[in-house]
Amino acid sequence: MKIGFTLNGKNTFIDVDAARRVIDVLREDLEMTGTKEGCGTGECGACTILVNSESRLACLMVAAQLEGAEVTTIEGIERDGRLHPLQKAFVEHGAIQCGFCTPGMVMASIDLLSRNPEPTQAEIREGISGNLCRCTGYQKIVEAVAAAAAAKEKDGLP
């Protein structure tokens, strides 16, 4: 099936089995390996991407669902070579250990902050509750998201 969509701002055309998982399209066909797979069943969130600005699990989507969609992956959130405020906060606050959950965590946090720009600690915990992290105990991730939210406030960024 021929499918056209926008991937990180670029028009993208693929010709794949319509039921091919989006995670495989991204990682194997398009060599965008930033999006990770940790379970394939929706339980871990490592494959979180944004589809039309909302978080989606790439392991539970088929290629046909991409048609006409605007897709953002971890590779597409830097602007002019500068880290997204959430990426920056993750680095600065030590929210990254093995890093395998990190791309999904960042994408989930973008979804959270777009709905709720000033989340409480509890709301942050809820916002990333679909993303398992086995390394950090979540504490530094929560701190990073809070810091990114505060920084956005201050800079008046969208």
Partner: peptide
């Protein structure tokens, strides 16, 4: 003193290549 991890940038941008990332 805290120094940011050397691997943090590559990991947070999705560039780091894990064993699972070779195709």
């Amino acid at each position: 003193k805290t120094a940011h991890r050397a691997d943090a940038y590559a990991k947070v941008t999705g560039r780091e290549k894990y064993a699972a990332d070779y195709y």
